[in-house]
Design a protein around this nucleic acid. Structure first.
Lengths: 184, 184
DNA sequence: TGTACATCAGTGAACGCGCGTTCACTGATGTAC
DNA sequence: TGTACATCAGTGAACGCGCGTTCACTGATGTAC
């Protein structure tokens, strides 16, 4: 059956949202188009009315995930604290796309990589405004290094099957640099 | 045809070595058993003489990759410099398994996760011996934070399609903490 | 040391399943009058 | 405002390919004598 124009827009948004969560939870390859469409409340055949291919969906999903309009401006200390929380560690599907899919996006289409690249640029610029450091150059380094440690830290914290080591990874990355300098 | 016992051992080692490189280059899902066996110079049917399943191969490969017998003791500064090099960024197949596959191993078998967990413990312990810091606790935090930043930093440097940003990510993580403190 | 034969690592064809993709169809939408 | 009909978003069956896995077979190895 045909569907209203607004419903079409909503369905498309639901597909992208479902895809984003599933991709982060299971990785691009393990997620089926039928999974995505089912989670969006549709049947798999309708997929090609919205996207050219699965690769196209991946690219569009990456673009959506890094849309700056979707994100609040981060404040370095607060951002890092909530990033390196147990909550974020546990909820991959709702969490940071770089931590969940960073290692896989390299092998996706140029469009997908480009979307995440542009998203990262914008994000690092914003993070550098509130990062610790005497001058702009130092703050930029702190933002780049800080976000690298967040991404690597939470990825390792998720990977590890030892809860103590996992907590230690979160804690060490919350403590290092910023907090140490503030108190030391 | 049957094959000598030594040849069998050698073939098995070749399969694991081929798998490790291919997994790091393309991810677990995208690598075919036929790919692995072909790279090891064998045909795909012989696979099940060595492993119970693809999952088993994944677990064995993770165990092999983190075998401490295979790795030299890292010295913090030197290790970080070579880790965050262009060479390491370019050669994923020969590089660090945590950076290449860390995000995917979470979804693999418990055995695979466990192998990488034990490997990480041993490695962090070793890295903490030469990490910067006044006391043991500080050095351990520096090791955890330093390695997190290396893993996240090189992952982002590989993902990004902008060479300038990629170099900046490597440089920022080489400079931060250690080098800054040494010169400042 | 030499011979006969059982073993078994590797081969390559085959199987079955699941996935991305296609397509004829349906029936609600939205337009033309 | 109401009616008739063309459009087209979504449905679900079908297709074909590639993958993990199985299996009957081969022929070199290594053991028993």
């Amino acid at each position: 059956m045909k569907v209203s124009r607004e419903q079409v827009r909503e369905n498309r948004a639901n597909i992208v949202a479902a895809a984003l969560t599933l991709f982060k939870e299971r990785g691009f390859d393990a997620v089926t188009l039928a999974d995505v469409m089912g989670k969006a409340g549709l049947t798999h055949g309708g997929f090609y009315g919205h996207f050219r291919s699965k690769d196209d969906l991946v690219a569009q999903t990456c673009a959506h995930a890094t849309d700056p309009g979707e994100r609040a401006k981060p404040v370095f200390d607060a951002y890092r604290t909530s990033y390196l929380s147990e909550r974020h560690r546990e909820d991959v599907g709702a969490g940071c796309i770089y931590a969940a899919l960073g290692g896989e996006v390299v092998r996706q289409t140029p469009q997908a990589r480009h979307a995440l690249t542009e998203g990262l640029k914008t994000f690092i610029d914003a993070l550098a405004l509130t990062a610790p450091g005497e001058d702009e150059a130092a703050r930029r380094i702190a933002a780049l290094n800080g976000f690298s440690a967040m991404v690597g830290g939470i990825m390792l914290a998720r990977l590890v099957d030892d809860p103590a080591l996992s907590d230690e990874l979160l804690g060490a990355n919350r403590t290092a640099l910023g907090e140490t300098r503030t108190t030391g």
